[in-house]
Design a protein around this nucleic acid. Structure first.
Lengths: 338, 338
DNA sequence: ATGAAAGCGCTAACAA
DNA sequence: TTGTTAGCGCTTTCAT
């Protein structure tokens, strides 16, 4: 009494009905080994008729793949992560891989638990998005040659594949845009992360290349939520001599900045310009629409799948670091100074 | 030359080192069978020391679970789906199940492909969120006694478990709120779906119970994107005698409505009230903040896991339909008529 | 209370 | 070209 109505058909059934051995069936399934066309066709016909689908578990037990990749994401509340997921899942589908969702909440313990569990389940590889607290664990994975790719961030000190956007250039472009509008005092709401730091570095570089001196207190670090962004921006706006523009290191923070400005009756873009980063759907629903820095998410997803699949199939175990370029998208939240 | 550095430790290693049989080890792992406390402790110690984690694939091959549940979602671009995912994944984690993400794009073919693939991979069950086009396939799953639960929608004609919110009550509450503010002519941007229809039905019921007659042309159906919502709302607002309030059947449509109003210079809530549904993060970043109908997403996720896990473990194969209640959340987008 | 051994469905080395 | 067979790592029945 199993509760199942149908007995799953196995490779034995196919072999029996086709009058061949399981080895032969296996060969036609995997399209390898020497087999006569006649036999192949005969077997394939039975397979099709019975709608036979090999048991992935059994084949994975023999050292083949599970065709599952774990995706570690800090927090799906940030809309950019939903975008990552969307495109990675889409590209995974194209490559024949399923995506197992693992939310980490930026917690090293959760990271470790997810990874332990997914290793038990023999996931073929791990895509880690945006952040990873547990560096020793990451190092261990690398040492054990588990396929890993860092998505949308880097750890230059570790020898691991990365697929990312040039955050420095993005920060540069954001600041440059603001500068080109005449802004000189530009506040930044930054995030404590590698990408965040790069974006800030880009911002400073843009200032410098425009001959604008750095000023203390214009860069504020905040947690990644909307409220934190709003609060941080509030501090900037309450300054005696407040900046005329704000660069939010992601769209969530920029949206928080918009709220902070509105609460204080500061007009955007009339009295304050705001630019975000990530070009998420949020940009079009806030008011005014948010200028932002767009990353080629779909291409990144595709690259990430390519890189990890190569690793999984051992085609290419050399380290790869792919860095694509972000693009400025101007909308209504940024305008000329004064 | 496998490329792997470490040889995974197996149940045999544990058995050998502990000086017992694999059967004994298996018993302590699964905490069943008769075993002396002494042996149990001895074996457990080795397991801990070697950080042994049983291979889930192998145990699943013997009829145990894969501890994987496939989550089918139409389109992660709608923020409510990201919320579903977040909470279902969280509750899944608590119950020891991983969530495999399957985007369907509302496409019957994609639905079928995901399900076929995840059955090959022996997913223990399927949670289907919000919509499912391929009804024959769903029926087939039910017939084969594959654990399935419908999340946030129902198919009353099918004998399948559902965990959902009372959409009728939600629609009723939304309309009632607007009516209580003095609105009499309330436009609706609806979605073609079971939930959508229920919400509209609730709206009509609220009108009726307030003694307001139905009026043609006030309910418009639209695709589920922001732009579709905006366009649909535009048609309502361009009516000679436009409604004084709009009920968007989800927050995306309501956000579209806000855009349509703004483009026409119609003040919200001064000249037009707008209410959404789902109470997603979007509500707090649009301006004015969006009144909405909140569903208890976390509780729904928890219930869904309970129901499906019961089914998986065959504890309870009776059909269950759980319907929870939504709650009105009033924010700035709704105000008194006139 | 513990162990020997069969077998889940598949792959691949080796034989024929 | 095709088949035989030994596992992959685990669970479970049946002996002991």
């Amino acid at each position: 009494m199993t509760g199942k109505v149908t007995m799953k058909t196995t490779i034995y059934d196919i072999a029996r009905i086709a009058g061949v051995s399981t080895a032969t069936v296996s060969k036609v399934i995997n399209n390898n080994g020497r087999i006569s066309d006649k036999t192949r066709k005969k077997v394939q016909k039975i397979i099709d008729e019975l709608q036979y689908h090999p048991n992935v578990l059994a084949s994975a037990m023999k050292g083949k793949f599970t065709y599952q990749i774990a995706l570690l994401i800090p927090d799906i509340d940030n809309p950019v992560y939903a975008q990552y997921l969307k495109h990675i899942e889409e590209c995974g589908q194209d490559a024949g891989f399923s995506i197992v969702m693992c939310s980490t909440d930026n917690d090293a313990g959760k990271e470790a638990r997810h990874i332990a569990l997914m290793r038990q389940k023999r996931a073929d590889g791990f895509i880690i998005a945006s952040k990873f607290q547990n560096e020793p664990l990451l190092q261990a994975l690398i040492d054990e040659k588990v396929p890993v790719v860092l998505f949308a961030f880097e750890k230059p000190q570790l020898s691991v594949d990365c697929v990312t956007v040039d955050d420095f250039m993005g920060g540069f472009a954001a600041a440059e845009h603001l500068i080109s509008l005449g802004h000189r005092r530009i506040g930044v709401i930054a995030e404590h992360s590698y990408s965040g730091a790069e974006r800030v570095r880009g911002y400073f570089a843009a200032l410098q290349s425009a001959g604008i001196g750095e000023e203390d207190g214009l860069v504020i670090y905040a947690g990644s939520g909307l409220d934190e962004g709003e609060k941080a921006c509030g501090r900037l706006l309450d300054l005696d001599n407040r900046p005329s523009a704000i660069f939010g290191c992601n769209d969530v923070m920029a949206a928080g900045a918009l709220r902070a400005a509105r609460n204080r009756g500061i007009a955007v873009p009339g009295e304050l310009s705001v630019i975000g980063f990530d070009d998420t759907p949020w940009c079009r629903i806030v008011h005014p629409e948010l200028s932002s820095i767009a990353m080629p998410v779909h291409e990144l997803g595709k690259k990430a799948m390519e890189v990890i699949v190569n690793h999984i199939e051992q085609k290419d175990t050399s380290r790869q670091s792919i860095r694509m370029f972000p693009k400025l998208v101007v909308r209504g939240s940024t305008g000329p100074y004064g």
